[in-house]
């Protein structure tokens, strides 16, 4: 009889079965390497795509000039005409469109974008743009949370508040935040005020509903247990409902922060364009596409690492959620029971 290897080691596609650590790591790396590889493949390997021809010498073609990118079909047909008329055909090499910046150039742009001073004296540096964006997000999200979290908790705890505010919020949440752009500018001017307001509008209403829902999901048995132990009203709210839902609220906040980032781009075109959106727009205007990609990827990296940071912070803040680390569960063996006389003992 052949001894059977553990199934987990053979099976890459085990249904709902966790993979071994090394495979997890390998797949994580692959999930980034594969798209990158595809990008590099299209960018660097000739004849994969390259739909344009970069003119190196115009020959006798009237409207071609050196340094111009023309579609391949036009290039071929013009050159055929030239040859038919015994004139000099244009020369060029096949290239990808300028908006497909190769990974190498983008990687370089990561470095140079921070080092290159802006073209115009009043334009911000990349890091200034990023800083501006982050502070816009921060204030929008902060003000929203300052109001949204308490309202959500109240709404999830007391039917009174739920009935009072949720119908209106439910309605308001369908109004797209960008629709308020013009109004916000009229009220708050063209600087950061309307931008923060857009992020607030985009976040706040969802936040109240999402958090109310999370608080409503607190196990009623925990509340009842606390009641039989003598907790009531505010103590019940402070000592049971909030701690019982705080980890889920925290997770909600992480997700909501992600949404706030999507509102950022909308917010930044309201009024005077600013922040990372302004940077991206300017760079696209200069046809400096590696910088455009670099800035977009930068947003991804900032969002991703913020989420990572908050996940790590969550582990520190909520030690009871730190389930036994991977693998063996730390579980104490039930100790022998040796009842000792307690102070409350009475004779039977």
């Amino acid at each position: 009889m052949a001894s059977r290897a553990p199934v987990a080691n053979k099976d890459w596609l085990g249904l709902k079965r966790e993979l071994p650590r090394r495979r997890q790591l390998l797949l994580t790396i692959l999930s980034f390497v594969l798209p990158l590889g595809l990008w590099a493949f299209v960018s660097y390997v000739p004849f994969v795509w390259r739909p344009l021809v970069h003119i190196t010498s115009a020959g006798d073609v009237d409207y071609f000039s050196e340094g111009m990118d023309v579609p391949r079909a036009d290039f071929e047909s013009e050159n055929a005409k030239m040859r038919a008329q015994k004139m000099e055909p244009a020369k060029g090499c096949r290239v990808n469109p300028v908006y497909l910046a190769p990974p190498g150039a983008v990687a370089k742009a990561f470095y140079t974008a921070f080092k290159t001073p802006p073209r115009l004296p009043n334009e911000p540096w990349l890091h200034e743009s990023l800083g501006h964006s982050i502070s816009t997000i921060f204030w929008g999200f902060f003000i929203s949370s300052l109001l949204g979290v308490p309202l959500g908790v109240l709404s999830g705890t007391y039917r009174f508040f739920a009935r009072l505010q949720e119908p209106f919020i439910e309605f308001f949440r369908y109004l797209p935040a960008p629709a308020f752009g013009a109004l916000c500018v009229a009220i708050l001017g063209i600087d950061d005020g309307p931008k923060i307001a857009i992020i607030f509008i985009g976040t706040f209403f969802q936040q109240v509903l999402v958090i109310a829902n999370t608080v409503r999901k607190v196990d009623p048995a925990l509340v009842e247990a606390a009641q039989t132990l003598g907790a009531s009203n505010w103590k019940l709210l402070w000592r049971v409902i909030i701690p019982a839902s705080i980890t889920d609220i925290y997770t909600d906040m992480r997700i909501l922060l992600g949404w706030a980032w999507t509102y950022l781009i909308v917010a930044e075109v309201v009024g005077a364009m600013s922040g990372i959106t302004y940077f991206i727009n300017q760079q696209a205007r200069y046809r400096n596409f590696p910088n455009v990609y670099a800035a977009i990827v930068m947003i991804g990296i900032i969002g991703f690492s913020m989420d990572f940071f908050f996940a790590w912070l969550g582990g520190l803040l909520f030690p009871w959620k730190r389930k036994a680390r991977v693998g063996k569960k730390k579980r104490a063996w039930m100790p022998a029971f040796d009842p000792k006389p307690a102070s409350v003992a009475v004779e039977i």
């Binding site: 196990d219 048995a221 925990l222 009842e224 247990a225 606390a226 039989t228 132990l229 003598g230 907790a231 103590k235 000592r239 049971v240 701690p243 019982a244 705080i246 980890t247 909520f318 009871w320």
Partner: peptide, 25 residues
């Protein structure tokens, strides 16, 4: 006092603090 089938210990409190809960209330 009540003991439920589903334990209903407060997961965010240590064992000692769970027992202290009612006393502090």
């Amino acid at each position: 006092g009540m003991v439920f089938q589903g334990y209903t210990l407060f997961p965010w409190l240590t064992v000692k603090r769970n027992v202290m809960f009612g006393l502090q209330m």
